[in-house]
Amino acid sequence: KTVEKVTPTLSTSKFLEEGVLTPEEFVQAGDLLTDKCQTWTWESGDPSRNVSYLPKEKQFLLTRNVPCYTRVRTLENESKAAIAEEIRIEEDGEDSWVAPQPTGNQDDIDDDKVDISSLKIDDKKPNTTTTTTKPNTNNDEDEDEDDGDIPDLDDFQDDNIIEEDDPAVLSKNKTTTTTTNNSNNNTESKVEDNDNILRTRTYDISITYDKYYQTPRVWLFGYDENRKPLKPEEIFEDISEDHAHKTVTIDSHPHLGISFAYIHPCRHAAVMKKLVDRQSENGKEPRVDQYLFLFLKFISVVIPTIEYDFTLEFDT
């Protein structure tokens, strides 16, 4: 933070040389992203936290309610290998950005990182991944430790509010639907339809401009199947294990003042430089306004199961 205050704002473009962005270029790239992918929007955030080097209404980028159907661990090795091949980044050096290893993910898991047993999912069909990794009971115990006593919400049951049985409501669960009076074939089929609603994790992803590293910085905020905020350790389940505890940490979001997990930007510029160079080698003119597309493509290595939109037809 303090360093950030004394760091001068980058004013000349060093996109091609160093893979970094000026605030103006960040805005340019953000404009293209919001234009092409309507799920991304510019946000102004908390006005008292506005930064002067970005337009007031373009302080950071946000995409809401991005579905995340499976945990990283359940990803098939093949798909991972495919991504890894696509973006093979520096693999030398101690603190280099780690690209996911195509093989052997299941084997070299650090025991202290995640409780593996809780992550086993029977997922033959993608639809069955609805209910999470953990049974609810476990969850409650967890929360007891972390978040204090969980009240018994049955105490809160207000017997006065019993709602009229309404045949025109598509209920959330089967038992209540089938009790409606007109349980003809029609209702039946709707119950089935209702089953197609998948209760899945979702993420809000935001991109801020990091003045110190002169790159975008990605923030994640997750919600579980019941729209409860995910705890940091649960968010780690959606980050490829190579990155989970190395490149992702928690800090206060600069425009919202709330703690989020973020992907540490220290290697972003170097990786972007590589990708830009590769574009040039392949005879493509790298365009600074496409920076975020390229950037998000490489971020998808870190968060492979979060299905955010970054589709723009272009080659690296």
């Binding site: 972390d146 919400l153 049951q157 509010i161 709602e163 669960n173 905020p229």
Partner: peptide, 27 residues
């Protein structure tokens, strides 16, 4: 309604993202 189709209040605890002590542990 809650997941059982009952009209009942919901509860959320944000200690893990709001409690300064817990945050210190995480970062």
């Amino acid at each position: 309604k809650d997941t059982n189709g009952k009209i009942a209040p919901r509860f959320v605890s944000l200690a893990s993202t709001m409690d300064p002590l817990k945050l210190a542990e995480q970062s």
